[in-house]
């Protein structure tokens, strides 16, 4: 264990050059967490697994994921895509430890506002060669996510991300203190994959090679780990609720497309990017009319409350739009259809 922080070896106090930005970025092993205090909750992520997912066209695609070595059962410690959920309470002191196992990685808890050293961006702090404990105390309840911030175009695309939910002190069932309560919760983590990217080495391009990471042509489209040929039936995608129940959808755009979503049920967005709406005079909850598309770009989150008043099967369509042409990706095939089933 390193006992004293040497800030000169990091982006905090070290000399920042063109090289330290990318090719030769600051890296540390066992860096002592500054201002370390006793945690209320510990999570840990390892990066030692790759998975081959069977694709709808009979091939496989390799993904990289974080695993959770502290999970309660061996089954839960197995690798998953997306990476396993982190879930905390507002106000808890969190220790989130990364052990990359091989190569260097970081954890960026996206939307969380910690100190620089706990933010997980190598060129302004350091990448982690061996164990670092990120420390923060979430002050907002809402929907976030976490991902690796090394060679981010590739590592994020490869699946090194997972949802991060902060519940209010009263726990799951309430979106935020003073906000709406819910009975049925669904995380819709939306992704697209370009198979060309999934054959690369982890540092591809970082020292100046042209590996084509400026071009992204997705062929696969996934909702919470489900390929779009199964999203109208798979329970990870389909929402099941009863009349009278309140549904919370936590929508995360983890794709590299502009995501246009249309729902056959009206809803109300009660928080964006982890920030509650309607608590202050400068904004209010945003009604989302049925059958009217709305757009979120990469990394945006919306928490949407739906209160179905009648039985039925209500379709939801997500269209993945190319960031330059605005056209539906993959020649018009970049669409996810799923449904909200109300009984």
């Amino acid at each position: 264990m390193q006992t004293a922080a040497d800030w000169e070896r990091t982006g905090v106090k070290g000399e920042v050059t063109y090289a330290t930005f990318g090719c030769n970025v600051f890296q540390e092993s066992n860096f002592p967490t500054p201002d370390r205090v006793k945690p209320d909750v510990n999570v840990e992520r390892h990066m030692d697994v790759s998975l081959n997912l069977p694709t709808p066209d009979g091939k496989t695609i390799r993904v990289w994921t974080f695993s959770d070595p502290l999970a309660a059962t061996p089954a839960l410690r197995l690798p998953t895509y997306p990476s396993p959920l982190m879930r905390f309470r507002q106000g808890q002191i969190v220790h989130s430890t990364l052990d990359p196992k091989k190569n260097a990685h970081t954890l960026h808890h996206h939307g969380i506002e910690p100190t620089t050293t706990n933010d997980g961006v190598g060129h302004v702090s350091f990448e982690v060669n061996a164990r670092y404990t990120y420390q923060f105390r979430p002050h907002r309840a809402g929907t976030f996510f976490y991902h690796c911030h090394r060679n981010t175009p590739l590592h994020f695309e490869m699946g090194m991300f997972g949802p991060l939910i902060v519940d209010p002190p009263e726990g799951p069932g309430t979106l935020f203190s003073g906000g709406p309560k819910y009975d049925v919760e669904k995380i819709w983590c939306v992704d697209d994959m370009d198979p060309r990217w999934h054959t690369m080495e982890h540092s591809s391009g970082m020292c100046g090679e042209d590996v084509g990471l400026n071009r992204f042509d997705p062929k696969y489209f996934l909702l919470s780990g489900v390929f779009n040929n199964k999203t109208t039936t798979d329970t990870r995608a389909v929402i099941q609720a009863k009349v009278g129940q309140t549904i919370l959808i936590r929508l995360i755009n983890a794709s590299y497309s502009v995501l246009e979503t249309t729902m056959a049920l009206p809803g109300v967005c009660h928080s964006m990017d982890g920030c509650a709406l309607g608590l202050e005079p400068w904004n209010a909850p945003l009604p989302q009319a049925a059958n009217r598309p709305f757009v979120i770009s990469t990394a945006q989150r919306r928490d949407i409350i739906i209160k179905p008043t009648a039985k039925g099967v209500f379709p939801v369509r997500m269209r993945f739009l190319n960031w330059i042409t605005g056209q539906v990706q993959d020649g018009g095939r970049g669409i996810i259809d799923t449904r909200i089933v109300v009984t």
Partner: peptide, 13 residues
Amino acid sequence: TEMSQTAAGGNYP
């Protein structure tokens, strides 16, 4: 939209 984090096809960030 991370393709924008590259220069000449690589060079992150």
